[in-house]
């Protein structure tokens, strides 16, 4: 069965790009969140297999969202997605529950390699 993915990014540009990449690779996009708080709520309701979290987002940032979602102890994986230069920060996120990270700019290969290694 195809994996269910929740995407959280405040930029529509990246949500669209991720949707395209994942859609073509056979993933099912179950939801799109514009901030961490929305992602947390949607993670509870939609039961995704995977949550992709942008780091810099309004209301609740990706790091806080990752911690909150991990604390729910749901059967899902979290992947952080962020810009160049933020590696130290996402590494901290990986220690507190995320399974991996993708560095923007996005490329199809990069995204799929990361996700396949995790799932």
């Amino acid at each position: 069965m195809s994996k269910r993915v929740l995407i959280a990014d405040d930029t529509e540009f990246f949500r669209l790009a991720l949707k395209d990449i994942l859609g073509r690779a056979g993933f099912t996009i179950v939801g799109e969140a514009e901030n961490g708080a929305m992602a947390l709520e949607m993670a509870k309701g939609l039961k995704p297999d995977l949550v992709i979290l942008d780091v810099v987002m309004p209301v609740m940032n990706g790091l806080d969202a990752a911690k909150a979602i991990s604390a729910l102890k749901l059967p899902l994986k979290i992947v952080m997605c962020t810009s160049l230069g933020y590696e130290p920060i996402v590494e901290e996120a990986v220690r507190s529950g995320a399974s991996g990270y993708i560095i923007k700019p996005l490329s199809e290969t990069k995204v799929l390699n990361t996700l396949n290694s995790i799932l």
Partner: peptide, 19 residues
């Protein structure tokens, strides 16, 4: 300040992806 930071951040990220 936070919002401004995010706006620049988003433009940076999108522009990097677009080349």
């Amino acid at each position: 300040l936070d919002a401004l930071f995010r706006h620049y951040h988003s433009i940076k990220g999108m522009s990097a992806s677009m080349g």
